[in-house]
Design a binder for these strands. Structure first.
Lengths: 205, 205
DNA sequence: ACCTGAACACCGTTCAAGT
DNA sequence: ACCTGAACACCGTTCAAGT
């Protein structure tokens, strides 16, 4: 039966199935993906250029859930903080997929319109032209890196309490597990925003 | 000639050859690597567990060049800034390799001893136990993310000057090419450190 | 238009056979 | 101990053949 009466595949379904596989094992193969969709590998090529494009679609599938309108809020610092947290929370929902997701920032071209609004909000807040995008890019860089940090295996820091007293103390002062990465994230985010606030206030009015 | 009189391979040589390939094309295959070393693919397995280990060795080869002693400096903020810049500069020397290098932070276990000294310096500076590692991890996250940003293709932001006046203005205010990423990096780094300084000063003495 | 089967070039890895 | 050749299972991709 070379062609069934109803179409079996579409791009979004392929992307979602691929994402499910990546969430489960961190990667996917074309045969796996095809099998999950009840189809032969070669069928995929009628809908998609190749594996690379599927990875792009899968990224889009996740990133689409981001609410960039949070960036367009008043006051700007609260909006930025909320946007950053939802961004990171979204990535945290896909731990096994992070290496695939976080190898590139969200392309602005996919969301130019909402960025326009965000930019307007930052300009209104008083940031200089040349600082606005730097602020957004810097936060996004921090978010990507934090996402990668999120999947770092835990126990690999072997600290000898005798030889590393300071390190032991600081490690002991931290929560364990996911909370640890959360804390580093919050400290970093707060520092970034405090720094931007200072930059804004130092600006000659 | 099944075995030459002199050994042809060693782990470090394999790692360096692999790094050269990744620098050139962003990836490598075992046959490529073997050919470059004047050897057959199967020979590699006498020195290395597999491709995954070669990737680890290659990462180590680069990361080894980092000078973590910069973290142990006075004043702490200048040391941190210098460390961060050398870290990023090192990654910038391997643009095609970044995706492979920046998928994980430098494991502290590889450098526990120098981190001990850094931690001591931060404690001396007055940071709280629970903040010291968060500061280092936050900066490292920012560095990883910035490295990925460094290889973002340029021209993909298509901005319509009519519909996106704010975005156009801000883009026009930025330098082009590598300088643009540099500027976002500097703005972010300065903000982070300013934020940490504020956290330090807000601390009850 | 869309699914299939067969085929292609290529990959990472294993292992007995050589010295 | 270390390199080789042959082999294995698997991968991504192409394409003529079917409806």
């Amino acid at each position: 039966m070379p062609r069934p009466p109803e179409r079996l595949l579409d791009r979004s379904g392929i992307a979602r199935a691929a994402l499910a596989l990546v969430d489960e094992k961190g990667d996917f193969t074309m045969p796996e993906l095809a099998a999950g969709l009840g189809v032969r590998p070669s069928s995929l090529y009628h809908h998609v250029e190749g594996k690379a494009e599927i990875v792009e679609l899968l990224r889009a599938e996740v990133v689409q859930e981001l609410d960039h309108t949070l960036l367009d809020a008043d006051p700007w610092d609260e909006g930025l903080a909320r946007w950053a947290r939802t961004y990171r929370d979204l990535f945290a929902e896909h731990p096994k997929a992070i290496r695939m997701l976080a190898t590139a920032p969200v392309r602005m071209s996919e969301v130019v319109d909402v960025y326009e609004k965000a930019v307007a909000a930052f300009l209104r807040a008083g940031f200089r032209d040349r600082d606005v995008l730097a602020v957004i890019v810097a936060v996004e860089s921090f978010l990507l890196g934090s996402a990668l940090d999120l999947v770092m295996p835990e126990g690999m820091i072997e600290v000898d309490e005798e030889r590393h007293p300071g390190l032991s103390r600081c490690l002991a002062a931290l929560p364990t597990g996911a909370r640890r990465a959360d804390q580093a994230f919050e400290v970093g985010l707060e520092a970034l925003i405090t720094g931007f606030r200072a930059r804004l206030e130092a600006r000659p009015v």
